[in-house]
Design a protein around this nucleic acid. Structure first.
Lengths: 300, 300
DNA sequence: GTAATGTCTTTTATCGGGAAAAAACATTTT
DNA sequence: AAAATGTTTTTTCCCGATAAAAGACATTAC
């Protein structure tokens, strides 16, 4: 079987959405950039679109013949990369409970249960290990360290160090830096979301990530920027898992963000520090309350 | 070929050194713990030792018949794991120059040149990516970010944040903590090394790592502890590469460590902070001077 | 002559297989 | 009965192979 063509399927689906907007598609290289794939994949997409009568394709001419129908799309689950499938499956087990600290992780068993090769699982575990939740025993199995209270505290400690620093760096950026426009745009999005919170509260998670990444980038330090991957990952699954009071929490967070943005715009270090601290404190609280107190990691 | 038996060969060599010290070897499980391998490997070792007339092996009885000779040992290069081989080979290229920032890294080519399978190279690159020197383009090649001045500055910035924090935590540890004994032992080792600096200056690198790891552990934060892997890796290869003024540098560093240790023992936060800062500053300087000024990373 | 399309080559992502090493189970020894 | 040895099973590590995807080169269109 070797390799699934999820890249093609995902790009195909995204390309279908373009058909609604135009009467004819752009050049192959242009489509490639637009969809983030190579020309090889673009040509496969065009070939299929011609086959299914969606477009008429003749060299430079790619005329749209009809609007895409629901059945033209590939099923969602076929557009995920193996890495995403493995990650989701792994995180589900991890958060579903029964995943005690100290437990062994078996590559072969994981591979079998998910229905993929061992190589993909190995690569996933190696990549995943930087999140600090698992650890490798040389020439042997992986050990689960567990999504514990200790983990959350260690994670948020670093987050707070890094974000306070990044926020200070952000506020010190020159007037003509492009980030101020980015910040304005984010502020607007926050206000829009706040006004429609009743129906759109679940969109906050994505906005949250973009906001914090913008701030972290101001550190100009790859280790700080990369560390946000760990935070984003944890919060991503945390949000999926723990929906209790979601709307309420997000409403509070939006207001904190707006205060934080105002502080950044004031460029007053003291205000920035205070607003940042306040928000981080409640973020930590949210995370901590979702972790059951009972089980603690055993000392090694 | 599938898998090399380097674990066996390395353990065999280490086991040979035990023969000098005793008249008979301990039980199989005990040997396994001692050598850090499974009983399966222990039994392979014993089997060969019997074959080559090194021991007489009969059930619980493992009598040493003769002292090991140089030709009994497996060649050093056969005892390295594939991961180590790939890492060394990769770092040599990286530091040997000609490795410009932005350059592409080709898995297949690397695998061919080192003479290993692509899987091992891929796994290495994934593991290595957390050091911040390379980056993956989705569905495509890796990009070298380069061992640049910017890298060194970003690395040392984090190091300083983490170590100042860890040092403060260390000094605040209770009197009865085991770390104070560890620190005393390290202090002694420093003094011994200082007195024989003329002949043993190249042993400093290893002592340096142990010292800093001890301090970082006081943070009780896995992300801080793990980050020292990045520092250790960089300094390890940096030391191998840049031997200029090595003795002089190490002599200074030992004195700084001793002052740092004294400050920790005083448990005076102000003194700790000052001694730590002073040492980190000169460590940063050492690293920076070894990096050519000229080439800078291109903005993305 | 620039930028597209058409064609061919190389590289990446992933699997299955096989030897090395670990782990589990059964049996013996003290 | 605790701990060793003997035996069998399982898992990890690593390679080679193959389809998907990217990339390079050749050709054509404007």
């Amino acid at each position: 079987m070797s390799k699934s063509n999820n890249v093609y399927k995902d790009a195909y689906n995204r390309c279908l959405r373009l058909l609604d907007e135009t009467k004819s598609l752009p050049s192959e290289p242009e489509l490639g950039t637009l969809l983030g794939v190579s020309r090889t994949t673009v040509r496969s997409i065009l070939a299929r679109m011609e086959e299914t009568g969606l477009i008429d394709w003749n060299k430079r001419n790619k005329t749209v013949l009809r609007a895409p129908r629901p059945e033209d799309f590939f099923p969602e689950e076929e557009t995920d990369s193996l890495a995403e499938i493995i990650e989701r499956s792994f995180m589900r087990r991890l958060l579903a409970g029964g995943a005690e600290a100290g437990m062994q992780i078996n590559e072969l068993e994981l591979a079998r249960e998910i229905g993929v090769g061992t190589t993909s699982v190995r690569e996933f575990l190696i990549r995943f290990s930087r999140f600090g939740l698992i650890e490798k025993r040389r020439n042997s199995h992986w050990v689960l360290k567990g999504f514990t209270r200790a983990f959350a505290l260690e994670l948020t400690e670093i987050r707070e160090i890094f974000e306070l620093r990044s926020a200070a760096a952000f506020a010190a950026l020159p007037e003509d830096s492009a980030v101020w426009a980015d910040l304005d745009r984010l502020e607007l999005e926050h206000r829009q979301l706040a006004s429609e919170i009743a129906t759109r509260f679940n969109e906050f998670s994505e906005l949250d990530e973009r906001f914090h990444r913008l701030i972290h980038r101001a550190s100009h330090n790859r280790f700080i920027v990369d560390f946000y991957d760990v935070i984003a990952m944890i919060f991503h699954y945390h949000y999926q898992w723990n929906k209790a009071e979601e709307r309420q929490r997000n409403e509070v967070a939006i207001q904190e963000h707006l205060a934080y943005i105002a502080a950044l715009k004031s460029r007053d270090p003291g205000k920035v520090d205070a607003a940042c601290r306040k928000h981080l404190k409640s973020a930590r609280q949210t995370l901590l309350t979702s972790i059951p107190e009972g089980r603690q990691m055993q000392p090694a």
